[in-house]
Design a protein around this nucleic acid. Structure first.
Length: 578
RNA sequence: GUCCCCGUAGCUCAGUUGGAUAGAGCAUCUGCCUUCUAAGCAGAGGGUCGCGUGUUCGAAUCACGCCGGGGACACCA
C-alpha cells in the first residue's frame, strides 16, 4: 500500500512540477552571480526528479508529506508557500481525475512554511489491512526486485578463539541488515571472510603445540603474544587423549607438527564459531577462505592488474600501492621487503573477487579499530575501476557491558574477554539480539545485562513481545473468525493510529536500508507496540457487537503480522504467550 | 602533531540526511485491574540541542573557531 500510494503520488507530483516549471516565465528566475549553479532551472528539475515523500511524525501533518516546494524555493526565487499552493492547485484536479488517487487521498493541504501534506482516505487504510492479510510474512517487502546483488561481509573473526561481544553486535547488525536489504529488493549474500592463514594462525598452531608439550610434562616457555585462553589447553588435551592422533603426531617432524596443530586448531575453532553463530540465529551463505584465495593465485593476479595500470611501484625494496592517487593520505605497502604480503594485498584481491562475482554493492562491517583502513580500501576499489560508493563500510562500535551500573571489565590481555556465548547464556537470544540493535550502529552502546535479563516493563524487548502475545491471547479467546469483516466499523482514533503505524512499516524498512542501519526498526516497533497497548487499554476487541469484534480482530491480526515481521528481521522471537 | 567520530531532559539515546511545536525509554511523582494477559494504560515535572560566529525563507543537523570525551595514525593482522 505504501509503495502503491507513494508511486502514484510521486508521478502525479512530478507531472505537476514539470508543468508548473514550464509556466514560470524564465524572466522570473533570476540567477544571482554567487549562486548561479544553485538557481538554475535545471536544478529545479533535478529536485523534481528525486523528490521524496516522508511520513510526518505528527499525524496532524497528514499521512504523507512532501518538502519539494521548500526545496524549489531557492532555485525559483519564490516563497515556498506560493510554490506549494500553486502545485496543490494544479494537483487537485489531477488527484480527483485519477481513479486510484481519488480513492486513496482524502485531502491535500499546504501547511507551515510550505509542506504539502496528503491525508489518506479511509478506504485506503482498509485496503492496507487487506494487503497485510494477503501478504502475511511478505508484508514490508517491496514489490520491485532487481536492486542488484549485495554482498554483506561481517563478523569475519580470525578463527583463533571464541567470538566476543564485539562480534556479537556485528552478527546481530549484519544479519538484520541483510534481512532488511533482502526485503527491499536486493539479492543478498551473507559472507564470512575466513582468515585461515598467516601469522595469527601460525601462532594459534604453535600455542596448541606448546600446551600439548606442556601437558606431556615438558618445560615450555609460553610466549606472551601466544593465545593464553583455556580453550587452547582444552584442545591440546583433546589431542593428547586421542590415542590414534597422538600416535600420528609422534611420527611428525617439527614443521609437519606445526602444520598439523595449525589445521587442527582452525578446524576445531571454526566449528565452535559456526555453532556460536547458529545459536545466535545467524547463518552465513558463504565462507570465503583466504587460503583458497591465495592458492588460486588471486593475490598475484590482483597485483598484476594494478601493476598494469601503473598503480604499483617499488621503493625501499618493497612494493607500494599508489593509494594517494585515489584520495588516501599516503601510499601503502602491499609486499614487504621480506617478500611477504601485508594484509592489504589479500584484501585487494578479495574485494576484486567480490566484484568479479557480480556484486554491485559491497557492505563491510568492521570494528572501530579498522577506521583508518577505510580510505585505502576505497582507494583500492577505485583503482579497480569501481565507484568508491560501491563499497560501504559500516563501523560497528563496541558495546560496553554493564552489570548493576558498573561496567564489566573487558581486558583482552591473557585472552580474557566477554564472549558471545556468555552474553547469550546470561540474557538469552531475544534480549541479546534486540539490545545490540537499540543504538545506531556507529555509536557506542551501553548494554545493561541486568535490564536485558529483567522480565519487566522497563525492558523494551518484552514490551514489544508482550504486544504480540496479547494479540495472540485475544485470538485464542475469539470464538471464530469470519473470512471477511466489515472494516468500515473501525472508526476510533486508536484504530486509525494503528493503521497509520502499519502503513509506515515499509517506509521504515526503506529508511533502514537507505541508512544501512537496522536501528530505526527498534524505535518503530516500540511505537507500534505502544499504539497497540493504548488501543487495548481503551477498547475491547471481543465485544458483544459481533461485526465490530470481527473488524477489530482483522485489525489486530494485521498488527500481529507486522510485529512478527519486524521481530523476525531482528532475529527475535514473537511469542504467543508470556 | 595530523585525521576521524561523538557532545540533545537527572541517566541511556532517537531525531526520516536542512524542515513543522526537539521526541522516546529509564528514574521521580500522581491516578487506573469485577472487563480479551497490569510484562499494561493515562497524567505531571524535567531542555541555552557543549560554547561562539557564520551560511538562508528555516540550523540539533551545514561551514569555521574554541571547550570537553573517545578513537585512528605499521613493511601488524
Amino acid at each position: 500500500m505504501f509503495e502503491k500510494v507513494e508511486k502514484k503520488l510521486k508521478s502525479l507530483l512530478r507531472e505537476t512540477i514539470e508543468s508548473y516549471l514550464q509556466d514560470v516565465p524564465a524572466a522570473e528566475i533570476p540567477r544571482p552571480e554567487s549562486q548561479a549553479h544553485k538557481a538554475s532551472p535545471t536544478a529545479a528539475i533535478d529536485l523534481a526528479a528525486d523528490l521524496s515523500l516522508d511520513i510526518p511524525k505528527e499525524k496532524e501533518f497528514g499521512d504523507l508529506s512532501c518538502t519539494v516546494a521548500l526545496k524549489l524555493s531557492r532555485p525559483l526565487r519564490r516563497s515556498p508557500q506560493a510554490i506549494a499552493q500553486a502545485l496543490v492547485d494544479r494537483l487537485r484536479p489531477a488527484l480527483t481525475g485519477d481513479p486510484d488517487a481519488s480513492g486513496w487521498i482524502r485531502a491535500v493541504e499546504v501547511k507551515g512554511p510550505g509542506f504539502i501534506n496528503f491525508f489518506l482516505a479511509d478506504p485506503a487504510l482498509r485496503d492496507l489491512l487487506r494487503d497485510v492479510a494477503a501478504e502475511g510474512r511478505e508484508f514490508g517487502h517491496c514489490a520491485e526486485k532487481g536492486r542488484g546483488k549485495a554482498l554483506i561481509e561481517f563478523v569475519s573473526a580470525n578463527p583463533t578463539g571464541p567470538l566476543s561481544v564485539a562480534h556479537a553486535r556485528q552478527a546481530a547488525v549484519g544479519d538484520s541488515l541483510a534481512n532488511i536489504l533482502a526485503g527491499r529488493g536486493y539479492e543478498v549474500v551473507r559472507e564470512y571472510y575466513l582468515n585461515d592463514e598467516g601469522n595469527q594462525i601460525r601462532i594459534l598452531g604453535r600455542s596448541i603445540l606448546l600446551r600439548y608439550e606442556e601437558l606431556q610434562g615438558q618445560a615450555v616457555d609460553f610466549p606472551p603474544d601466544h593465545y593464553q585462553g583455556q580453550y587452547i589447553v582444552d584442545l591440546a588435551r583433546e589431542l593428547l587423549e586421542d590415542q590414534v592422533r597422538r600416535g600420528k603426531i609422534e611420527k611428525l617432524d617439527l614443521p609437519q607438527k606445526e602444520d598439523f596443530f595449525m589445521e587442527f586448531g582452525v578446524e576445531r575453532i571454526l566449528a565452535v564459531i559456526r555453532q556460536e553463530l547458529e545459536d545466535f540465529g545467524v547463518r552465513f551463505d558463504s565462507w570465503f577462505s583466504q587460503k583458497a584465495l591465495t592458492k588460486a593465485g588471486k593475490i598475484e593476479k590482483a597485483l598484476d592488474f594494478l601493476k598494469e595500470k601503473e598503480f604499483l611501484y617499488e621503493a625501499e625494496s618493497a612494493l607500494w600501492f599508489r593509494s594517494t592517487a585515489f584520495g588516501d593520505d599516503k601510499d601503502r605497502v602491499v609486499r614487504k621487503s621480506d617478500g611477504s604480503y601485508t594484509y592489504l594485498a589479500p584484501d585487494i584481491a578479495y574485494h576484486q573477487d567480490k566484484f568479479r562475482r557480480g556484486f554491485g554493492l559491497l557492505i563491510n562491517l568492521w570494528g572501530p579499530d579498522h577506521h583508518g583502513y577505510i580510505p585505502r580500501m576505497k582507494a583500492a576499489v577505485r583503482a579497480m575501476g569501481q565507484d568508491a560508493e560501491a563499497l560501504q563500510v559500516i563501523i560497528v562500535q563496541l558495546a560496553t557491558l554493564f552489570r548493576q551500573g558498573e561496567p564489566v571489565p573487558m581486558s583482552t590481555r591473557k585472552g580474557q574477554y566477554v564472549t558471545l556465548r556468555e552474553v547469550l547464556s546470561e540474557v538469552g537470544l531475544d534480549a541479546a539480539r534486540y539490545f545490540f540493535l537499540m543504538r545506531k550502529t556507529d555509536s557506542h552502546l551501553d548494554f545493561d545485562l541486568e535490564l536485558a535479563k529483567q522480565q519487566t516493563p522497563e525492558n523494551p524487548v518484552y514490551y514489544v513481545q508482550y504486544a504480540h502475545a496479547r494479540i495472540a491471547g485475544i485470538l485464542a479467546h475469539a470464538p471464530q473468525q469470519a473470512a471477511s469483516a466489515d472494516l468500515t466499523r473501525l472508526i476510533e482514533e486508536e484504530e486509525r493510529d494503528l493503521m497509520r503505524a502499519i502503513f509506515s512499516f515499509p517506509y521504515v524498512l526503506e529508511i533502514c536500508s537507505r541508512q544501512l542501519d537496522p536501528n530505526n526498526l527498534t524505535t518503530y516497533l516500540q511505537a507500534l507496540a505502544a499504539a497497540f497497548h493504548r488501543f487495548y487499554d481503551r477498547h475491547k476487541v471481543l465485544t458483544q457487537d459481533e461485526t465490530l469484534a470481527q473488524a477489530r480482530l482483522f485489525l489486530i491480526r494485521a498488527v500481529m503480522t507486522v510485529l512478527a515481521n519486524g521481530l523476525r528481521i531482528m532475529g527475535v522471537s514473537a511469542p504467543d504467550r508470556m
